[in-house]
Design a binder for these strands. Structure first.
Lengths: 195, 195, 195, 195
DNA sequence: CATGAATGAGCCTTCATTCAT
DNA sequence: CATGAATGAAGGCTCATTCAT
């Protein structure tokens, strides 16, 4: 009874794995099922098409990043330190899963029915919104910050920079570090954090 | 001099058009050549493969966005107004070409040899960097801003938010406006603009 | 005694139904079992393969047509009237079950081992043969008619015309009626019926 | 310039050949193209799908049968002899191409858009109609025969009996001959031929 | 007897690319 | 330079059948 949806999870994990290695175009369903240890036809019992795994992958990705962030952020640290921790967590995650992330963007825009993206991110937005609300209550950030909207901005911002660095640029470690610092400074000013 | 590379341009424009309408996966070379009004084989006289149009498209896209920005930004306006103008231009452009942009990301990451993205954006980064340097010289933004790096951050940021709104969210006009205002406020604080 | 072979009958009836609606190619075993309200595997407890339902269907079809004919034909009517009744019955039946009939032909010729067609029609041939013998004894049809053979001719003939009208032609009601009259006249002359 | 549509004809001929040998289900497009000596993809330049060859085959079949009939019938012979010749031609043809004929029925009813059957047969109907009109003018058949309609009846009748013998029954040569004679007698009476 | 999840061989079709004209 | 008919490798998907429960 333990492995309800066992196969579905296996497929998703295998898909993430293969996509990371081969890219979306070059990944065959046969690759996925081979790694998942199931038959070709079984795939289609759980997903109607190759691309339809994408939303499921996205969901898993969001869960992963939230775990990452939760683990990294020290609740007792200062807002400034916490901000750095958030950036670190997102950067680490983006670096680890850069290919998959690119795939999700491609896959989601490729497949038709998918404006699910927003829904998928909801949990992360909520978390970030709570983080900002809290900081605002404590007077650690400027009062004009609107948590709901700012949370979306922040996530979009940090991820975009991380992707710029890890997906599109080929940047030295040194430069990577400098960019990250510039980003954090940007965010501190944007949020009106007083150090 | 007029129709030097006439066919090549036709192909690029046709490709942009078809990609906008059908997405990268579903676009066939035959669609492109049909719209370009040339023969199937002719395509391969100008581009070695389907994906190799991507960098060319990207280049055109960057040209387009810079024209857009240059047209929008009033050199005599205040920095704050100019910032809004930049955001407006990028938003308008992203809305118009959202599919193509997604395709470029996907296409560039799909194609193997291409980390050209950076190179392609160089002109835009330079422009933005100049913009920031200038503002810094005039003391309109905080002195700690590092123009080279900040320009990348800003472009990534504004584009990411625009994409979030136009690609992934299905957002009301009202909410779109509010998000844009929040973004501008964010940027003003980030850059330390004094109003 | 009531639901002996209950499931088998359910399968056959469901198969007829689905075949009528979807055609032989597009009918999946899963469609049949769904309509029959049984599990996929159960199908194979009663039939060794998909095509092997065909003879069973054919048998049911023949039973149906004989019921139709028996109900229609008035034993006390004149031979001429009876002939019309036979034609009417076969026409009605063909119209109702045209798709299934086409399927039976296709199915029987598709499946390898089956020249069972003849056997299946035997009962109908016998009935018609008896009908002709009887008429011959009573001197209502020409004496040279050979009942055994003529019965096959008649059935083939009437069915063929009905199929021509209902399967292949898209014919007006008026024309349908005229064709039927021409057919009956044909048969009357062929059998040498004196009116 | 001679081989315009060369490939299309090759495909049709190959399809007829392979269908005759393997049946419709078991025929792969790859079998057809192999025999036609062309590439797999080329098939789809001429036909949109596997089943769409069917109408083309049907057309060829009708042409073939008309050639057969025209060759067999002696214009100067008596109507009775000519009738026998028509039956012989159709029987011979049906025997030769029984599998293909069965396939056409199956194929036409399988594919959707096809009530083309009637159109395809038009030429044959016309020929037979002319044959009957002529005989009627010469007073060789009963005056009440309506050539247009009777031509359809006759073709349906003769073909149906031939198919019954060659497709569905497994009949001895002797019985085959007897059935044919019974059929001719049937037709003679039906048409009111005076010998 | 009944189930239905799992299987996997197999085929149709697509489409980027080539090359003879 | 231009053409577009021809190519054929490649892979997504189906579905009849099986078998452990």
């Amino acid at each position: 009874m333990v492995d309800i949806n066992n196969k579905e999870e296996k497929i998703i994990e295998a898909a993430i794995q293969v996509f990371k290695e081969k890219g979306i175009e070059k990944t065959k369903v046969s690759d996925i099922v081979k790694l998942a240890g199931i038959a070709q036809g079984t795939f289609y019992l759980y997903f109607p098409s190759k691309l339809s795994v994408m939303p499921a992958i996205a969901e898993v990705m969001v869960k992963k990043i939230m775990i990452e962030v939760n683990n990294e952020v020290d609740e007792n640290a200062s807002i400034s330190v916490q901000l750095t921790q958030i950036v670190n967590a997102i950067f680490r995650f983006t670096k680890e899963y850069r290919e998959v992330l690119a795939l999700i963007y491609a896959g989601l825009s490729t497949d038709d029915n998918l404006k699910k993206w927003e829904t998928i991110y909801d949990a992360f937005y909520s978390w970030m919104s709570g983080f900002l609300s809290n900081a605002k209550l404590k007077g650690e950030i400027r009062n004009s910050v609107q948590p709901e909207r700012a949370s979306k901005l922040m996530i979009a911002f940090i991820e975009a920079v991380a992707e710029q660095i890890y997906l599109y640029d080929a940047v030295s470690n040194e430069e990577e570090k400098m960019q990250k610092l510039e980003l954090i400074m940007f965010l501190e000013h944007a949020l009106g954090i007083q150090k």
